[in-house]
Amino acid sequence: MGETRVAIVTGGSGGIGRVVAERLAKDGMKVVVNYAGNPKRAEEAVEAITAAGGSAFAFQADVADEEQVAALFDETEKTFGGVDVVVHTAGIMLVSPLADLDLADFDRMHRINVRGTFVVDQQAVRRLRRGGALINFSTSVTHIAVPNYTAYAATKGSVDGMTLILAKEMRGRDITVNAVAPGPTATPLYFDGKDQETIDRAAKAAPLERLGVPDDIAEAVSFLAGPARWVNGQVIYVNGGVV
């Protein structure tokens, strides 16, 4: 692939998304940092990429709004000439036992995690160039069945289903579709509302006896976005061996 590849990272202004954006830029891609509502953090991500010699810009879009997402892809094509990689990290996690969950919270999670994935994926598969890669974000919670994550796991189970079927719908286009499913990862989103005992217990759950860090997740994304052309239609559990 002679020309520079172009990546869109949704939710790219903070947490795992920002580290993914910086990693893909380090891999030599031009990067579009999508964000929902914090332009300062998005610009900081762009500045970090450009300071390291990369090329990036930030673009605000609600991932569940089809017009805003179409505008995100339009601006990427206009500025960088096309789209080769889409990494959809944007999502929210609201934790509660099923019996106690406010249905408004369930609807909010569904809108961002399920509809948002559908809207972003729809634009991605319409526009990705040959040799491209679409990488959704799932969760290891669907696999390890942690109490209180019922609603969140339900939204990410939908992501798994979309990913596996979409990979087959891309037949003949040389586009891979996979999902990364992180386990407990040291981000503000993960730490929010957890006491130290809960965090320590999660850190001991993996045979490697630590929490994941965003760089661990970004490494898997880099692999799927670049050299991994024979990994397709998979949900990759990036969790240090938690079962």
Rank of each mutant, 00 (worst) to 15 (best):
residue 192 D to Q: 14
residue 199 I to C: 02
residue 122 Q to H: 09
residue 103 L to R: 11
residue 119 V to M: 12
residue 110 H to S: 13
residue 134 L to K: 08
residue 112 I to G: 14
residue 196 Q to R: 15
residue 205 A to S: 13
residue 103 L to G: 01
residue 186 A to G: 06
residue 79 T to F: 02
residue 169 E to A: 09
residue 142 T to K: 05
residue 88 H to K: 06
residue 167 A to F: 01
residue 104 A to H: 11
residue 94 L to M: 15
residue 180 V to L: 04
residue 190 Y to S: 11
residue 200 D to G: 01
residue 189 L to K: 11
residue 166 L to M: 13
residue 106 F to W: 13
residue 157 G to F: 14
residue 142 T to D: 12
residue 164 L to T: 03
residue 126 R to T: 02
residue 124 A to D: 02
residue 128 L to G: 02
residue 76 T to I: 09
residue 154 A to D: 07
residue 193 G to H: 02
residue 132 G to H: 02
residue 188 P to L: 14
residue 126 R to F: 00
residue 130 R to A: 15
residue 140 S to H: 02
residue 119 V to D: 03
residue 132 G to W: 01
residue 180 V to P: 00
residue 182 P to S: 10
residue 159 V to M: 07
residue 125 V to H: 01
residue 79 T to L: 07
residue 174 D to Q: 08
residue 181 A to T: 04
residue 90 A to G: 01
residue 176 T to E: 03
residue 82 G to E: 12
residue 166 L to D: 00
residue 123 Q to E: 13
residue 84 D to P: 09
residue 178 N to E: 06
residue 202 A to Q: 06
residue 116 G to I: 01
residue 164 L to V: 01
residue 138 S to K: 00
residue 184 P to K: 01
residue 121 D to C: 13
residue 114 V to W: 06
residue 149 Y to H: 06
residue 177 V to H: 02
residue 164 L to H: 07
residue 74 D to N: 15
residue 184 P to G: 09
residue 146 V to A: 11
residue 175 I to V: 07
residue 187 T to Q: 04
residue 147 P to T: 03
residue 202 A to G: 15
residue 106 F to A: 04
residue 154 A to C: 07
residue 152 Y to K: 04
residue 113 N to M: 13
residue 170 M to K: 06
residue 99 A to P: 04
residue 184 P to A: 13
residue 124 A to K: 01
residue 135 I to A: 00
residue 105 D to F: 04
residue 108 R to E: 07
residue 154 A to N: 12
